[in-house]
Simulated assay, not measured.
Amino acid sequence: MGEERRTILITGASAGIGAALARECAARGYDLILTARREGPLQALADELQARYGAAAAVLLADLADPEAPVRLVADIAARGLTVDGLINNAGFSRTTGFLSTDPAAHSAMIRVMLTAPVELSRLLLPGMVERGWGRVLNVASLAGQMPATGGDTLYGPIKSFLIKASQGLWLEMRGTGVHVTALCPGYTYTEFHDVNGSREQVSAAYPRWMWMDADRVARIGWDAVEANRPRVTPGVMNNVLAALGGLLPDALALKMVGGHAKRLDRL
């Protein structure tokens, strides 16, 4: 008998970096549990992973804005007889339109999806990983978490900063257990959405090409980092330069550096 395959749970797996990470993990011999809100794209991805890589991929629908979703998701996984050996907290939330002009319910959902759910899923699943002596947790944060917050997307950067710090704390706690924890901090990343909706040329015009990376490359760098047990990884040389500048510059200069962010994106 061959070695038993390990299984990775990916939230927000239907598209973008989540789908790219699913392909990366499947190519490396992992089975997958894919979750998001939309069944069609998840099932299409599951079929692709089976056909291309021979990976088993279970599809479970979940809306992580629902406070009960993490507990229910873990229960559904157990009911299928599946074991979660690794967790990729990737689920995101559509960009808000300014703090005062965004419905407070949307802010609450954003915090649930991007902050609370990763914490709860980690707390639910890490004990099993520690008990088995092997685990991988990859939290998809952002370059924005290493920069001053931007107007118009006021909560996004602070949420991602929390995720980075929480990942570093977990990395310290998990030392010696066989569980690796990494915060992945991508900058601007091209996904298939830019091709499908015809906006690739527009987003390229909003920011220079050197600021953008492809989702497949980001996924490869992220999974290499968690396998190597690096507490944080920021893909791309220039993204690392920007992160360093964001931490070293005085507030006035740093805020000026990011001040035009929301206005440029609003023109897309």
Rank of each mutant, 00 (worst) to 15 (best):
Q202F: 10
A228F: 00
K160C: 04
Y188W: 09
A219S: 09
K165A: 13
A215S: 14
G222T: 01
S167C: 04
Y156T: 05
V179L: 11
Y188R: 10
G222K: 01
Q168T: 06
L248G: 15
Q146M: 09
A228Q: 00
M211H: 11
G152L: 01
Q146T: 06
R220F: 01
G176T: 05
Y188G: 11
A206G: 11
W223T: 14
G236C: 03
P231E: 05
P250G: 05
D216P: 01
D251W: 10
H194S: 12
G247N: 03
F162C: 08
T189I: 12
R209Y: 12
A205N: 08
T189F: 11
F193Q: 15
G236S: 05
G151F: 03
L184W: 14
L163W: 05
R175E: 08
R220T: 04
Y207P: 00
V237A: 15
D153S: 14
S199W: 10
M213K: 11
R220I: 07
L253A: 14
H180E: 04
F193Y: 14
R230Y: 12
T191I: 10
A215T: 06
E173F: 09
T234R: 04
G152S: 02
T189L: 11
Q168A: 12
Q202I: 13
V241L: 00
W171E: 03
L242K: 02
A243Y: 01
